[in-house]
Each structure stands twice: as C-alpha cells, then as structure tokens.
Amino acid sequence: MAWTNYQLFLAALMLTTGSINTLAAKWADMFSAKGCKDTPEHKFSHPFVQAVGMFLGELCCLATFYMLLCHDRRRVEPTMNAGQSFNPLLFLPPALCDMTATCIMYVALNMTSASSFQMLRGAVIIFTGLLSVAFLGRRLVVSQWAGILITILGLVVVGLADFLSGHKDDTHKLSEVLTGDLLIIMAQVIAAVQMVLEEKFVYKHDVHPLKAVGTEGFFGFIILSLLLIPFYFIPVGSFSNNPRNVLEDTLDAFCQIGKNPMIILALLGNTVSIAFFNFAGISVTKEISATTRMVLDSLRTVVIWVVSLALGWEQFHGLQVLGFIVLLVGAALYNDLHSHLLSRIPSCAHLVRKDDAPAAERARLLDEGKVEEQS
C-alpha cells in the first residue's frame, strides 16, 4: 500500500530531526570560545547544560499535547483519546532514569564520534529485552533472543572499530574513546529501565505518548536545572574539561555562548529537533507502524555517519560499516521486521508466526489500570 503525502512527511521529519538531534549535540561540543573573566579559549564541554536543553524540547511535547487536545475538542465529534487520569508522579522514576542516562550519554559524546554514539545506543535492545522478561513477565521468541545475541556481536565490532581508529584519532585519545563507548553502553542499561517503566505506566494508565514524554520532560527540566546549582561547586578534577574543573560550570557555558553565538544555534538545534523527533516518532507509530519507526531510527545512524564523514568529523573505517549492518540485523530480528516483510509476500505469508503476546500483555496492563482507577 502506497504511503500518503502526510505519511511521507512524517517519515522524513522523523529521519531528519532524529539525525539533527545527535549532530547538533556533537556540533556544540566542537566549538571553542573564551569563558568568564577572559579565561583562555577552550572547548564547549557542558553536557548537563545540553541535557537541560533536551528536556526543554521534551517539555514542548506537553504543550503540543494540550494544543492538539484543545483543537480536537472544538470539533463536532472529538476523536483524540486523552487517556485516563493518572498521578503525574508516576512518571518521576522514568524521568530520573531519562535524566541520568541522557547526562551520561552527553558526557560520552565529548569522548567519542557521533556515529559510534548512535550505533552503540542500539545496546538498549539487549537490556530492554532482558528487563521486560524480568519485570513485565514477557516471553521472548527465538528471533528476539537471536536479535539480542547479534546486537551484542555488533557492539563488539563497533567497539573494535573505535579501538583501532583510536590510535589514529587526533581529536580523542584511545582511553577517552573507549571510556566514552563504555559510558554509552552503561547509559543504555538505565535507558532500558526507563523504557520498561514507561511501557508499564503508558499502557496501564492508557497515557497519550506525547503527554508521557512531556511529563518526563517537565520533571527532567526542573530537577536538572536545580541540580546545576550544586554541580557548579562539586570539584571533579581532570574528569571535567571546564576551567574550574567542576562537575558543570553553567556560568562558563553562558559566557562561551555570549562570545560565540554559533553555540546557541547548535543548542537550539538540539532542543527543537528533540521536540519534533518525539512528535514525528509517535505519529509514525500511529499513522504507519512501529516497525517503520524502528527502520527510520536505524536509518538515521547512516545519515549521522555520512554527514560526519562529509564534514571531516571522523575518518572512514570499514569495521564501522560491518558493525552497523550487524546491529541493523539484530534490531530487525528483535523487532520482528522479518515477519513483517514475509507477510507482504503472498507465497510466504503462511510462514509468519502469529504472536499476540504483546497485545495480550498490553490489554492486561490496561485492565489493571482500569481496576485501580475504579477502586
């Protein structure tokens, strides 16, 4: 079935904004400027300030949700499902997970390349699968276990590519690259906890995804903005790249922005792109399919890699191509893309295994939420 113009627009928007999000964050890291009190010119290394900007973008999703809701209620026959009422504090735990994982990843992005950053984020499949078995009672099929094992192999290949290219990289030391890679994988453990909590709450309380993202953005923005105050006074030695060697020097960030306005352009690109990316991703799932969303999310890794090569941000390494292909196969198997493709071929449709477990699980969570609401 051919896509409509609106569906094509959504797919293009998701691919574009998803790629801009990572590229803008890396672009900000590459700027240099003098800091406060005319401190010597240094790199813009402020991962926690960047994370605040990302949560501001997520917070915009909450505003978008209420605007869409108001517009829908003006219709003669409203069609938008606003979901059940729920305690917003339910989303505080996943918001804390999101905040922690995001901050760790932005620290890691200062140490490794944008393409490796995006590829290694694929590790979330491994931990999400294992945690969903442990805490959601999900049963993974053989293809999903195979997807997890292949993803692990892909991560090893990408890590090996970073290890080999680290000897030739003038921008980052080998130890920094490997540390950055390990931090990204560590962050995916926390991101997996976030996803499991989100799935449980979103389906159990029938929460609109835009409202869920926006609520987490609200908590993340408020909490991390307040944490910037103590971070300004916590010394971390050589771990930090700011002049005062503290966990986060927010004043230095603003001074650098004032002396190099291009930095604010990169930060705005990060903030605006995350808002549109979340909106487009949710819309793609609704208008097309979750499988299409997975494919587009994998394709943005290619876009980020090609753009990084074109801009001279990194060097070509054949192992990265192999690593990406292996990760893509792992993601495809885990997300049951092979069944989706076979179902489109009439002669192979009978080979597709019918598995209604995810739908049944979501129905169970939704029923639990209704029972709790009635009691």
Score class of each variant (00 low, 15 high):
Ala2Ile: 13
Phe9Asn: 05
Ala12Lys: 06
Ala12Tyr: 06
Met14Tyr: 06
Leu15Asp: 05
Thr16Phe: 09
Thr17His: 06
Ile20Gln: 02
Asn21Cys: 09
Trp27Ser: 10
Lys34Pro: 04
Asp38Ser: 09
Val52Gly: 04
Glu58Ile: 12
Glu58Met: 14
Cys60Asp: 05
Cys61Leu: 12
Leu62Ser: 01
Met67Gln: 12
Leu69Phe: 10
Val76Glu: 13
Gln84Asp: 09
Pro88Asp: 05
Pro94Tyr: 04
Thr100Glu: 04
Thr100Pro: 09
Ala101Arg: 12
Cys103Trp: 02
Val107Phe: 15
Met119Leu: 09
Gly122Trp: 00
Ala123Thr: 02
Phe127Leu: 05
Thr128Pro: 00
Thr128Asp: 02
Leu130His: 08
Ala134Trp: 12
Arg138Lys: 14
Arg139Asp: 07
Arg139Asn: 11
Ala146His: 10
Ile148Arg: 02
Thr151Ala: 06
Leu153Trp: 10
Asp162Thr: 07
Phe163Val: 08
Ser165Tyr: 00
Thr171Val: 13
Ile184Arg: 08
Ile185Ala: 04
Met186Gln: 14
Val189Met: 11
Val193Leu: 15
Tyr203Cys: 13
Lys204Asp: 11
His208Val: 09
Ala212Asp: 07
Gly214Asn: 05
Thr215Phe: 00
Glu216Asn: 13
Phe218His: 10
Gly220Gln: 02
Ile223Thr: 06
Ile223Val: 08
Ser225Leu: 06
Pro230Thr: 03
Ser240Cys: 04
Asn242Asp: 01
Arg244Ser: 12
Val246Gln: 04
Leu247Glu: 00
Thr250Phe: 14
Lys259Asp: 01
Pro261Ile: 05
Phe276Arg: 08
Ala280Val: 08
Ile282Pro: 04
Val284Ile: 10
Thr285Asn: 14
Glu287Cys: 11
Ser289Tyr: 05
Ser298Trp: 00
Trp305Ala: 10
Trp305Phe: 15
Leu311Cys: 11
His317Thr: 04
Leu327Thr: 03
Val329Leu: 10
Asn335Trp: 02
Ser343Val: 00
Asp355Gly: 03
Ala363Glu: 15
Leu366Ala: 15
